[in-house]
Amino acid sequence: MPASKNVGIVIVSHSAKVAEGAADMVRQMVGDNVPLAAAGGNAEGGLGTDVAAIMAAIDKAWSEAGVAILVDLGGAETNSEMAVEMMPEERRERIVICNAPIVEGAVMAATEASGGSPLAVVQATAEELMSA
């Protein structure tokens, strides 16, 4: 199955190492079956999040089935929301920010996505972790 048919996963952390490390774990689980991108750190390479980098990650992981974003703390969520709003209008409805722990959520969401599940199911699978 071509990767672009599956929901894409974007990982947004304050730390580039956390974002890349979580992406490594996802890749080990699902290989190249899921479009995947990570955005970590601020524009200067310090801790923080960067709207432009998040937008680039969404572009990189873009799939017609949509993109699920996993975030760590406050600013990562707010900056991800900002990035989504700055995306072209026809894409916005196909991007969700999951209320889930970043590492476990990314792995669960990617596993669900690799089976071809639609965006709402991918999001629900990641968010189930919060009620488990």
């Binding site: 310090g46 923080g48 709207v51 406050g74 600013g75 707010t78 900056n79 929301e81």
Partner: peptide, 15 residues
């Protein structure tokens, strides 16, 4: 501010 601040205050002050 949205593009440069790098924390939650970027989108908040930007908005």
């Amino acid at each position: 501010l949205v593009m440069k601040v790098g924390g939650a205050s970027g989108p908040l002050y930007g908005t």
